[in-house]
Every structure is written in structure tokens, then in C-alpha cells.
Write a protein that binds this DNA or RNA. Structure first.
Lengths: 127, 127
DNA sequence: GTATCTGCAAAGAATTTGCAATCCT
DNA sequence: AGGATTGCAAATTCTTTGCAGATAC
């Protein structure tokens, strides 16, 4: 694989974002420092980086895909009020998988789970 | 809300399917008994039925939405070999939610989880 | 040099929507 | 009658892809 400024920039943007940007958010940020970059290139490289295991793709219910710099095992919670995506780290992952595998006979390969709920901040505002 | 043959048919199709049909599968089946029905009507009614709480919508990673007659709490497993979607019933739902709510401070509203894996049948064939 | 990568624009896939005609009640 | 619902087609939204030119090695 050849080096490419576009790909380096895209990886940088995902790695430096503390939320979970969509492809067009990455595109908007990328254009700041590289005005001629195209959306197609952003998609191509995001997918390439996912294949290379350098970032993760998250499928959100009823929405665009999001990209995540954290590649270690974790889940997500999408706030139905503000729409933000939060990381969820679970200790008992293996236990949960084991329970399911035993009761169903299927084998679980990945379980990047997406929960829906109301985040801490939005709960504060409700009062 | 007015009665509509199209909506009755669509609900029937979802209720009588033992897998989790996509909108265009429902459309294909519906055309058998109602050849003039349109895909737009299928989408409109599926979404309406979801809003009414009579069926559920499942968002599959990298795929079309699927619709499910089972509205009680349960999860899904998508087999990466055959592509079928299986129901997963978990006893310890509340425990899992409680763990997450305590450790994060968020409130979980729904957690219709989608696992990826290899189903029982495909595992057999691998041998 | 040449294979990879890019920008562009067009194509694709899934879903939604505007509108005039039709159907319930 | 009159509002809800439909079929149709066009529009949207998100993502992928073909291709000719640019870039990295």
C-alpha cells in the first residue's frame, strides 16, 4: 500500500475526534486543511482503514455510519435526545456471550452492541 | 385511523413470517395477493405499524432494515455465513442494563441488540 | 515507469415524499 | 363529503464506483 496524504489526514481526524464522526463530518474537517479532497476519497479511505483494523465502523439505528478510533472491544449508547454516541465498556462481555452461545448453539463473533437511551447530560436538563 | 386492506395485508405478512423480512420481501409477498400495491405503501405502512407498536424494526449492520412481529423484548443474531437473523432471548436483561446504567450514569431505554456470529446450522456445515 | 491513489461525477441502493386519484366512514 | 390512504414517480440520503489524470516509490 502506498502512502497518501489524504489517508493520513483522515486517520488523524478520526483519531483526534472525541466523538464518533460520520463520513461527512470527517469530510468537512478534512476540507479545512485540504480543500480539494473529495467525499469519495473520504469514504474509500475510511473503509480501507476499517479493513486494516485501524478504526471501527459503527452502524447506528436509522442513521449514517459512524467511525471510531477505539478499536478495542466496546459497545455504544446513542442518546435519543441529543443524538450523541457514547462508549460503553463492559467487563462481563465474555459472560454475556457465553450465556447466549450456550442457550442458542450459535457462535458469537462480534457483538458491537448499540444501546439506545438518554445520556447523563440530557437527564440533568430534564429536571 | 382508517382501515386499509393494504395495511392489514402487510401486518399479516409480517405476523405470518417466521424470519425477519425486509421491506422488499414484504412487498414481493404482498404483490401475490394484491398486484397493484406499491413499494411506497409498504414502507409507509411498515413504519406506521412500528410507530403503533404492532411490529418492530431491526437495524442490521450494513444492510436493509428488517421487520419483526415479535415486539416483546429480545435481541438478534445475524449469521455472517447465511445472512439469516435469529431471535435471542436473554433472561438477564435487567442485570445487564443495571450494570451499564450504574457505571455510566446514562439511562437505557431500549437495547435491541444485534450480535454477529455463525449460526448453529452453518457451524454444522463447516465440519 | 507503473501500480496505487485521487477528484469528479455518475450510478446505486434504500427509503421517503409530493401529488392527484381513490377509498373509508 | 372529507379526511386518510394509495400508486406512481421523482426526490433524498448515504455510499460506492468508473475513469482519466496525479502521485508515491
Amino acid at each position: 500500500m502506498k502512502n497518501s496524504n489524504q489517508r493520513n489526514l483522515i486517520l488523524d481526524i478520526v483519531n483526534n475526534s472525541h466523538n464518533h464522526p460520520t463520513a461527512d463530518i470527517v469530510y468537512a474537517i478534512a476540507k479545512d486543511s485540504m480543500p480539494n479532497i473529495s467525499l469519495g476519497t473520504v469514504y474509500r479511505n475510511l473503509n480501507l482503514l476499517v479493513e486494516l483494523g485501524q478504526i471501527k465502523k459503527i452502524a447506528i439505528y436509522n442513521g449514517q455510519d459512524r467511525f471510531d478510533k477505539t478499536i478495542t472491544h466496546h459497545h455504544h449508547l446513542v442518546c435519543i435526545k441529543c443524538g450523541r454516541t457514547f462508549d460503553i465498556l463492559l467487563e462481563d462481555k465474555d459472560e454475556l456471550c457465553n450465556v447466549i452461545e450456550k442457550s442458542t448453539g450459535h457462535t458469537i463473533i462480534t457483538n458491537d452492541l448499540v444501546f439506545k437511551g438518554i445520556c447523563k447530560d440530557c437527564k440533568k436538563e430534564e429536571r
